[in-house]
Amino acid sequence: MTKSLPEILKNQPVVVDGAMATELEKHDIDTDNDLWSAMALIEQPEAIYDVHKSYFDAGAQVAITNTYQANIDAFVKAGVPADDAQKMITNAVEIAKRARDDAWTALTPAEQAAKGGFFAAGSVGPYGAFLANGAEYTGDYNLSVDELKDFHRSRMQLLANSGVDLFAFETQPQFKEAQSLANLLESEFPQQSAWISFSIRDSKTLCDGTSLAKAVSYFNDHDQIIAIGVNCTAMTNITAAIQTIKAVTDKPIIVYPNTGETYDPKTKTWQSQEEEASFEQLTPAWLKAGARMIGGCCRTTPKDIHDIADVLTNTK
Score class of each variant (00 low, 15 high):
residue 190 P to M: 02
residue 207 C to Y: 00
residue 11 N to S: 15
residue 75 F to D: 02
residue 274 E to H: 12
residue 29 I to V: 13
residue 234 A to E: 05
residue 90 T to M: 11
residue 286 W to P: 00
residue 222 H to W: 09
residue 67 T to R: 00
residue 298 C to A: 06
residue 95 I to C: 00
residue 23 E to Q: 15
residue 248 V to C: 14
residue 190 P to G: 05
residue 207 C to Q: 11
residue 55 Y to P: 02
residue 44 Q to W: 02
residue 79 G to P: 04
residue 115 K to Q: 10
residue 249 T to R: 13
residue 57 D to A: 15
residue 269 T to A: 12
residue 158 L to V: 05
residue 96 A to K: 00
residue 77 K to P: 06
residue 20 M to I: 13
residue 252 P to Y: 01
residue 291 A to L: 08
residue 113 A to H: 08
residue 120 A to R: 03
residue 121 A to P: 01
residue 190 P to H: 04
residue 283 T to N: 10
residue 58 A to D: 05
residue 163 G to S: 01
residue 104 W to P: 09
residue 210 T to Q: 15
residue 18 G to Q: 07
residue 80 V to H: 09
residue 94 E to W: 03
residue 300 T to D: 00
residue 157 Q to L: 11
residue 198 F to C: 09
residue 278 S to Q: 04
residue 230 V to E: 07
residue 282 L to V: 09
residue 109 P to F: 12
residue 116 G to P: 10
residue 191 Q to A: 14
residue 46 E to H: 11
residue 194 A to E: 01
residue 202 D to E: 14
residue 308 I to G: 07
residue 188 E to C: 12
residue 190 P to I: 04
residue 313 T to L: 07
residue 258 N to H: 14
residue 205 T to E: 14
residue 64 I to P: 03
residue 79 G to N: 08
residue 65 T to M: 01
residue 101 D to Q: 14
residue 169 F to I: 04
residue 208 D to E: 12
residue 247 A to E: 15
residue 89 I to D: 10
residue 119 F to Y: 14
residue 35 L to E: 06
residue 300 T to V: 03
residue 202 D to W: 13
residue 161 N to D: 15
residue 242 I to R: 08
residue 36 W to D: 01
residue 187 S to F: 03
residue 306 H to D: 10
residue 249 T to F: 13
residue 127 Y to C: 01
residue 269 T to S: 13
residue 312 L to W: 11
residue 5 L to F: 09
residue 33 N to L: 04
residue 49 Y to C: 14
residue 273 Q to K: 11
residue 250 D to F: 04
residue 64 I to H: 01
residue 105 T to S: 07
residue 172 Q to L: 14
residue 210 T to P: 12
residue 146 D to S: 15
residue 240 A to M: 02
residue 308 I to N: 01
residue 262 T to W: 10
residue 6 P to I: 06
residue 4 S to C: 06
residue 210 T to M: 12
residue 292 R to E: 03
residue 248 V to M: 14
residue 118 F to I: 03
residue 289 A to W: 11
residue 10 K to I: 06
residue 211 S to W: 07
residue 298 C to D: 06
residue 96 A to C: 10
residue 192 Q to V: 00
residue 178 A to R: 09
residue 153 R to E: 10
residue 236 T to Q: 14
residue 213 A to D: 03
residue 289 A to M: 13
residue 240 A to G: 07
residue 164 V to K: 04
residue 28 D to K: 13
residue 13 P to H: 04
residue 103 A to C: 04
residue 209 G to R: 07
residue 153 R to M: 08
residue 224 Q to R: 08
residue 167 F to N: 02
residue 116 G to F: 07
residue 186 E to Y: 03
residue 282 L to W: 00
residue 231 N to A: 08
residue 136 E to K: 02
residue 257 P to S: 13
residue 179 Q to F: 09
residue 54 S to R: 09
residue 226 I to N: 05
residue 13 P to V: 00
residue 62 V to S: 04
residue 286 W to H: 02
residue 29 I to H: 05
residue 21 A to W: 08
residue 132 A to G: 13
residue 310 D to G: 11
residue 242 I to L: 11
residue 43 E to C: 10
residue 162 S to V: 06
